[in-house]
Design a protein around this nucleic acid. Structure first.
Lengths: 215, 215
DNA sequence: CAAAAATAATACACTCAGTATAATATTGTC
DNA sequence: GACAATATTATACTGAGTGTATTATTTTTG
């Protein structure tokens, strides 16, 4: 059997990716059809023609079948903070979010799919809990990045406060945008309004700290 | 057998309270001794000389054996908002927290016991998750109370934003106070400093809304 | 006081998530 | 083709949480 070109994924890796995708697809379909709580990992495994253990192999927790790409948000923010030039850490974060919103980036854009996704999440206690856990993780990561950018130790309460408030702002703004979208079919200026209100508060809270000073 | 005076708890209720307390005590002891994850509900049941089902009867989830009195905080805030006089809802909340801190109220006071309690929580993923869930619940309750006090619908994003930011502020201030206490044996002004910074931000964020206007 | 109604506690059996381990099948490498 | 690496599977286990029917105890009522 011929080996593929170096750097290209081999047969094994392609099969792994396919298996993972197959499991994920089956799970998504079943969750939408019957709700997260009414689908067991056994159901997913047998429907995907795979051993139960294989499911846990790719997705350590059942909830991971739903949430499996939080890293990209972290990467976006990290990149923005790294190349923020003369901006303060907090201002850089805010500028990034304004840009993402302006450009209708997938991360913040509301679509029928995202509405359905978050409805599924809202209907499941386990998924709601997991979503909040992920928010905490993101806030922790954001806090660490803000602290580093501001040359402060990463337990600094001001950094944690900034991160938590920024995260709340985005989550609540997104939630309001979802709500408006459900009623009117588009989000109007709701997202931006809530977001700017939150940003005002964060800027005021952190005024006079390294988080709002240029480097 | 004679019936007790009306209004007084009867034998049945006293036994219930005793059983509940006994289970809770055993659980607390075992959790401190061996850690939350290393104690099964079976362990607690047999040590407390009670059926496994009885434990779940009183404490539907294992985590409830650790967190079992969040209502009193809600009651405190509700009472303060109800009798706030000419203060705005946000100002009333802030005034309440300043008072509690000033008076070294058990809810905010840091002691060796609370340090150990939160250490136990921090060492257990399940308990940390549960603590976060409770924070969400409290924030939701607070949001509902703020919205009602401001005569706004309870899905109002401004109310949710205010509640989330106030809750974050308290949690982070408390966490910082815990940290300082562990290092220096008292909390100094850390709690107040973080708290006031957060309050500044919340007031700025909600400026011009019903949440910061007198009724 | 005795019988009946109410309910706390128990016994038992079950589902499901998640883990551990050893065996088997498949792929990559020489 | 042989051998090493690893993905998958079979099997069995722990532990949380639920459902149900039964027993024991308390309260109420006649």
């Amino acid at each position: 059997m011929s080996t593929s070109a170096p750097g290209q994924p081999g047969l094994r890796d392609r099969k792994k990716a396919a298996t993972r995708q197959a499991i994920s697809d089956v799970a998504t379909r079943l969750f939408v059809e019957r709700g997260f709580e009414n689908v067991s990992v056994d159901d997913i495994a047998s429907e995907a023609d795979v051993a139960r253990k294989t499911v846990f192999n790719y997705f350590p927790r059942k909830e991971d079948l739903v949430f499996d790409r939080e890293e990209e948000s972290v990467a976006l923010v990290r990149h923005a903070l790294a190349g923020r030039g003369e901006q303060s850490p907090v201002a850089a974060f805010q500028a990034l979010m304004r840009t993402l919103l302006e450009q209708r980036h997938p991360l913040l854009r509301i679509t029928r799919r995202s509405v359905q996704f978050w409805r599924t999440v809202a209907e499941s206690p386990a998924l709601s809990t997991r979503a909040r856990e992920l928010q905490i993780t993101l806030a922790d990561d954001l806090a660490a990045m803000l602290c580093e950018a501001a040359h402060m130790p990463n337990f600094d309460p001001d950094g944690r406060l900034a991160a938590a408030m920024l995260m709340d702002t985005m989550v609540i703004a997104y939630g309001e945008a979802l709500r408006i979208f459900r009623r009117k079919g588009d989000t109007g200026a709701a997202f931006l309004q809530v977001m700017e209100r939150g940003f005002t508060g964060v800027s005021a809270a952190l005024a006079g700290t390294p988080y709002t000073r240029s480097p």
